[in-house]
Amino acid sequence: ENVVSAPMPGKVLRVLVRVGDRVRVGQGLLVLEAMKMENEIPSPRDGVVKRILVKEGEIVDTGQPLIELG
């Protein structure tokens, strides 16, 4: 699984990683606000951040690609 998608609609509050960062399974990639709750979106696997597909403040839909892992 190379693309991390939004599990719910919401607003991207914070991106916690940068392109080139090594991440571990379960590590927070970004914080999504949904229904006034902050939800940290975890990495599904170990890898390297290849691309960040959203910006802070952006509104996303369920299933929208957020981050690509390499």
Score class of each variant (00 low, 15 high):
64 Q>D: 12
15 V>Q: 11
49 V>C: 14
43 S>W: 01
58 E>V: 11
24 R>M: 11
45 R>K: 02
26 G>R: 09
53 L>V: 11
26 G>K: 05
22 R>D: 11
10 G>L: 07
34 A>H: 06
70 G>I: 02
2 N>F: 13
1 E>I: 15
69 L>E: 04
33 E>H: 02
37 M>Y: 06
52 I>E: 04
36 K>T: 05
41 I>S: 07
2 N>A: 08
14 R>E: 03
48 V>K: 08
51 R>L: 03
1 E>G: 15
40 E>Y: 11
50 K>G: 10
46 D>Y: 14
65 P>F: 01
27 Q>F: 10
31 V>T: 05
42 P>Y: 03
55 K>A: 04
56 E>N: 13
35 M>H: 11
32 L>Y: 00
68 E>D: 10
25 V>G: 08
20 G>W: 13
8 M>E: 03
65 P>C: 14
13 L>V: 03
13 L>T: 04
68 E>F: 13
54 V>K: 07
43 S>Q: 05
55 K>N: 03
12 V>A: 02
45 R>M: 04
24 R>A: 13
43 S>L: 08
15 V>C: 15
56 E>H: 04
38 E>F: 02
58 E>A: 12
37 M>C: 14
38 E>V: 01
26 G>H: 06
14 R>K: 13
25 V>T: 10
45 R>F: 07
46 D>L: 05
12 V>T: 12
3 V>R: 14
70 G>Q: 02
45 R>P: 07
56 E>T: 02
35 M>A: 04
30 L>C: 15
50 K>V: 11
46 D>E: 10
62 T>Q: 06
40 E>R: 13
4 V>I: 04
69 L>R: 14
40 E>M: 12
48 V>G: 07
11 K>Y: 01
46 D>G: 13
52 I>N: 08
34 A>C: 15
58 E>G: 12
41 I>V: 09
7 P>A: 01
42 P>K: 10
53 L>M: 07
40 E>W: 12
46 D>N: 07
4 V>Y: 06
69 L>A: 01
39 N>Y: 08
63 G>N: 10
7 P>K: 04
6 A>T: 06
9 P>R: 07
18 R>F: 11
70 G>E: 11
42 P>M: 11
60 V>M: 06
45 R>V: 11
66 L>P: 15
67 I>C: 15
11 K>F: 05
27 Q>C: 14
67 I>P: 15
51 R>A: 03
54 V>A: 01
31 V>N: 01
18 R>D: 07
33 E>F: 02
66 L>W: 12
25 V>E: 12
56 E>M: 06
67 I>E: 07
2 N>M: 03
